[in-house]
Amino acid sequence: MASSDYARIEQAILYLDAHAREQPSLDDVAAHVGLSPFHFQRLFTRWAGISPKRFLQVHTLSSARRLLAERRSVLDTSFAVGLSGGGRLHELFVTLTAMTPGEFKLAGEGLTVHHGVHTSPFGDCLIAVCERGICGLHFLTGESEAEALESLREQWPRASFIESTKLTAPWAGRIFPQTPPRERTPLSVLVKGTPFQVQVWQALLRVAPGDVATYEDLAKAIGRPKAVRAVGSAVGDNSVALLIPCHRVLRKTGVIGDYRWGSSRKQVMLAWETLRREADNEDGDGEALQSGLA
């Protein structure tokens, strides 16, 4: 999906969210994003796997408090058993590996990082991989590829960086497959963080697509119920977007809140996952879904 397509989708989602009570027509939304109704219908359905009309019917983002309340029991169970909840079709399988204290001190010395920019349902992103897996995923929001790469260099200052879109393309294909794969192999992710940060990121992996959690939920899940502010900092320090799903964290009031790669993108990502779960529930075999995440 081209960046221009994502920009239109973002505009459409935000427009539908802001005008949900008015039940805008297809013509209204299409005009807002500068497309004919026919082309907008095709674009939105290809992206979401569900029509704009159906999106309004299952819309939940303007009722985030209700979403929190509805998913709380599922979330508590997933934390208790250490497994992700629902989202059968779109659940991401991620194996998180943290650097050892010795490797942490080396700051990436001896590590070769290959990187490349790829399109995704949420706009262009910089993907960085090494022999141990994915070590960075940055959406290019308000920053250039060079700026995103500089952020990775700061994290791994002694590593060698090589631009290689050809090498990162297979990883992008696994993260953002064009069609749902029949079999999924866990994605390996290498992170550099303190033991506390790693604990928080591991807890995030147990929040399934279509579910949300609060910072208080995460603090409770790692056995540090009073460390809410520190949990928030750890969530914000995540440098592997989407795969470590920091976008699924809301304030306890239901407010979307800040997001490293843009609050609008966070809202769109939550909408996408909600839509996909609805589509999955309505179409058990998933054959109607033409694109999306593993």
Rank of each mutant, 00 (worst) to 15 (best):
residue 135 C to E: 06
residue 140 L to Y: 03
residue 31 A to V: 07
residue 237 D to Q: 07
residue 118 H to M: 05
residue 162 I to M: 06
residue 207 V to F: 12
residue 2 A to C: 00
residue 105 K to Q: 14
residue 31 A to I: 01
residue 57 Q to C: 05
residue 112 T to L: 03
residue 112 T to R: 06
residue 88 R to I: 07
residue 287 E to N: 02
residue 248 R to F: 12
residue 45 T to Y: 09
residue 226 K to Y: 13
residue 68 L to F: 09
residue 288 A to H: 02
residue 254 G to Y: 07
residue 127 I to K: 11
residue 204 L to Q: 05
residue 237 D to G: 02
residue 109 E to A: 14
residue 205 L to F: 04
residue 113 V to Q: 07
residue 140 L to W: 05
residue 184 R to P: 00
residue 192 K to M: 06
residue 196 F to I: 04
residue 60 T to H: 02
residue 85 G to D: 01
residue 210 G to K: 00
residue 274 T to L: 08
residue 209 P to D: 10
residue 15 Y to W: 15
residue 146 A to N: 09
residue 153 R to K: 15
residue 43 L to S: 12
residue 190 L to C: 10
residue 21 R to V: 12
residue 257 G to L: 03
residue 99 M to G: 04
residue 288 A to W: 04
residue 222 I to Q: 13
residue 168 T to D: 11
residue 136 G to P: 02
residue 60 T to M: 07
residue 263 S to Q: 13
residue 220 K to Q: 15
residue 251 R to I: 00
residue 68 L to T: 12
residue 278 E to D: 11
residue 284 G to S: 09
residue 184 R to V: 15
residue 154 E to M: 02
residue 279 A to W: 02
residue 33 V to A: 05
residue 158 R to P: 06
residue 160 S to V: 11
residue 163 E to Y: 07
residue 230 A to C: 05
residue 12 A to I: 08
residue 15 Y to E: 13
residue 13 I to Y: 08
residue 201 W to K: 09
residue 128 A to M: 10
residue 238 N to I: 08
residue 129 V to W: 09
residue 26 L to K: 08
